[in-house]
């Protein structure tokens, strides 16, 4: 469903994403791991068509993002980092606006709004202004926006960031549930999340994919490692070591 080939992104002389390729099939939940500044968000922004790649290609459901951006974006739901929202709208009117841009109108629109308000536990704040929401509600409102059209491809940039433990658990199980008939990519810093929700994980470091496999197989990469945490540190610590040497 998601085909990423030889993706490269440079900002000036800095190479942010260096030849990244991977694919995600329907029914897969891919965890995107890596230290801060490794290129996770940049990669996701290219997959969603927000950034223009320097080179390489992105295909969603067989539709090329660079050639037919509008068509490809119809198949896509996206939760950007920090969950941006229009601060002058209410939760319901914001979701209504997103539904309209997705081509959902009339009675279907009302139904779609009700469905995601229910799914994301937002019913109690439906007519509240986005400005007055707490971080958890803001996050869930933006998450609701990403699933309002029941997309085949879902890309979530740190979906559990800023949530309390209960909400984290809820979002994780929601991702797992939806992963059964969608292709999902989500990035996170919390490694237990990967074990809880992902069927596969990619570790990305300094713009390159350094590991790709099931959480189980990743553990076997580093002999003697008992948790993903240790694996992550030993694979990506080279960067800090590298910096110290330099």
């Amino acid at each position: 469903m998601i085909q990423v080939k030889n993706l490269i992104k440079t900002f000036g002389t800095k190479v942010a994403v260096d030849d990244v390729s991977f694919s995600v099939e329907k029914g897969e939940v891919l965890g995107f791991l890596g230290p801060n500044g490794a290129g996770k968000s940049t990669t996701m922004r290219m997959v969603t068509g927000y950034f223009q790649p320097t080179s390489g290609s992105v295909q969603l459901c067989g539709i090329d993002m660079l050639e037919e951006p509008e068509l490809a974006k119809q198949r896509l739901g996206y939760l950007p980092e920090n969950a941006p929202l229009y601060s002058d709208m209410t939760v319901a009117s914001f979701l209504g606006f997103c539904a309209e841009l997705r081509g959902i109108r009339g009675a279907a629109r009302t139904q779609a709004i009700d469905r995601v308000l229910d799914l994301c536990f937002l019913d109690s704040v439906r007519n509240q202004s986005v400005d007055t929401l707490s971080k958890g509600y803001r996050h869930r409102t933006c998450f609701a926006q990403s699933i309002i059209h029941d997309p085949e491809v879902l890309i979530l940039d740190e979906p559990t960031d800023g949530l309390d433990p209960n909400q984290k658990h809820e979002v994780r199980s929601m991702i797992k549930r939806m992963g059964q008939n969608k292709a999902i990519i989500f990035s996170t810093h919390i490694l237990e999340e990967v074990e809880a929700a992902c069927s596969r994980a990619i570790i990305i470091d300094r713009g390159k994919v350094v590991a790709d496999g099931t959480p189980e197989s990743l553990k076997k990469l580093v002999p003697g490692a008992s948790s993903l945490d240790e694996v992550f540190r030993s694979i990506t610590k080279s960067e800090t070591a590298h910096k110290k040497a330099a």
Partner: peptide, 8 residues
């Protein structure tokens, strides 16, 4: 980022 990743 939201607006530009919508089919608009």
């Amino acid at each position: 980022e939201l607006l530009m990743t919508m089919p608009v």
